[in-house]
Amino acid sequence: MLRENAEMEWIVPKPVSEILKWVLLVWLAGVIVAAFFYVQPAEGFIGESSRIVFFHVPMAWVAVLAFLVSCVTSVMYLRRRDPKDDIRASVSAGLGLLFAVLATTTGAVFAKIMWGAYWNWDPRQTSITILLLIYAAYLALRGAIDDPERRASLAAVYAILAFVTVPFLVFVVPRIYWSLHPDTIINTRGANEFDSRYTQVLLASLVGFTYLYVWLYTIGCRIEEIRQRRRQEVL
């Protein structure tokens, strides 16, 4: 049960968060402008298609980060049985699903330009589809259990099981089967193939979107906490 005087969820202290919100707005606007005007299109890619990397890679990174947070908070829930950990896990899984959809969409646009079709079941596309199914199933499971405590612990177990399959999808499936996907940032040769302007904009974009996730996560947790407290007051 949530305590009456429970602290609201603030990862970043509230006054700092109020300022960072506006910094984030300017930062992401800057990233978008830089992505289109500061860097030159990369060689070996058709037209301007390489610019999508500044949006696609951060989306995929945030999706994985959100799932990691969801898994860690699920483990924490099972250890100390704090309902707030359950809220954290569910909010993070929801955001992970959102960012995974965005990564899939940006990837499909790139696939259309480079490979000629939005969807061709490339191993990367297959793995992201399964990832989407996993987290949709997680949310379906949460919807199917009434009792809050049972829902929290069963969902936590499923989130951990799901997270265990992520390395197979992200690393094993694309490695075993031939893929059209450009080398990932962390590639097998350990080389960074981007020029310096690419690296700058990509890092800035990663930072921006990561904070966007943190901000959305904070808001999501607070909303969910208020909603649960209201429900307890009604009962």
Binding site: T126, S127, I130, L133, I134, A136, A137, A140, L141, Y158, L161, A162, T165, F168, L169, V172, V173, I176, Y177
Partner: peptide, 13 residues
């Protein structure tokens, strides 16, 4: 719904 996503990588292999 819950099993298939976990089983799909296995099925591919």
């Amino acid at each position: 719904v819950l099993s298939l996503p976990l089983l799909l990588p296995l099925m591919i292999f």
